[in-house]
Design a protein around this nucleic acid. Sequence first.
DNA 1: TATACCATGTAATAAGTTACATGATTTG
DNA 2: CAAATCATGTAACTTATTACATGGTATA
Lengths: 200, 200
Amino acid sequence: MSLRYALLALLTAQPMTGYDLAKAFHGSVGHVWQAPDSQIYPELRRMQSDGLLRGEDVPWGQRGVKTQYTITDEGVAALRKWMSQPLAYSPERDPAHLRAAYLEWTDPPAARAQFEQHAAHHRELRDQRRGQLESIRDRTHPIVARRLAAAPEGAWRRITAFKEFTYEGLIAQAEREIEWAERGLRLIDELSSRDPSRWD
Amino acid sequence: MSLRYALLALLTAQPMTGYDLAKAFHGSVGHVWQAPDSQIYPELRRMQSDGLLRGEDVPWGQRGVKTQYTITDEGVAALRKWMSQPLAYSPERDPAHLRAAYLEWTDPPAARAQFEQHAAHHRELRDQRRGQLESIRDRTHPIVARRLAAAPEGAWRRITAFKEFTYEGLIAQAEREIEWAERGLRLIDELSSRDPSRWD
DNA sequence: TATACCATGTAATAAGTTACATGATTTG
DNA sequence: CAAATCATGTAACTTATTACATGGTATA
């Protein structure tokens, strides 16, 4: 159900269309929550019929119209309520670690490839997250900038502090995965040199 | 689709019933993959009809019967194939970090509670994982012990090395989350003392 | 003999993924 | 005027969650 609250959180900055939101789910928020448009559009309509959003048809070019969603007071209340509730931790599901635990079922080159891929994946995540953090710090992040403009000055510090803190955590997460993968590569080398015979 | 491969990996140690497997998904493997029985039983039947497992009715007590599943050669081949393929990284979905990014929408006590809960959750995970690591190291882990008994001695070192390495990674992951949550608590205190007025 | 454990499901949702579809608008 | 971008969906499917349901076996 977090998709709903991610949408609400985004819409506290400014009214947006489904397309705007889908874009945000690829970029900024995408670092903590991702969703395809086929999930976003129907959810927005459900949220509207639940009274959390107000949808307005605004003109787009000469003939076109687009639906712009604005968060309602009820929507803000729902976001606040969710925020104050204890978080439901979902069951562990970690394909990379699952696979690592059973790497004896493949050969050294394939095992190496796993860890190299893991490191590469998380290096990319780390770099993207660093970019996001930068844009929050220097206020060039468009959604954060809009959110600040819509909030009283006294709230600015905590609005950015929590977002910076979140990205710092995500960067550290990625760095940890990179280190782990690099240790994995060393482990494979060690196992291969001890026992150069085929594994399987 | 990782559920299927988690099941195959477990069944390389020894034949097991659906119940045995469900139990394993709460204990040991549960650290990397969890699944409810309502997902396990049907999946086992699908895997049997796909030829990856062989199901045998074995007597249980006087009248009872239970189905014991044994991995087939085809099942081993499927596991090996999956192991050598690049891992599909699933979209980011991190409710704890999502929430942290928008903590300005709640008050300091509720924000503190979030991080305290996060730290407590990951302390418990860390401790459970430490216990698992211990039982792998001293060979008291029942499934690992069976797996070693079924494997040639030359493979023992790498079988345990990969599992130990996996748990070391998971422990470090939990420790990182604990540190992050503790930093979060300090951040809230800092923000509250700077600006002791209500947040909302 | 009661309690914990073993064993196996079905049904109804909910959530998420993939593929298919379409058309208008802006920009180079 | 072509290409990129904006805009919005439906349909089929897979995966996962929650709740309900039942009954046998071992053990203290």
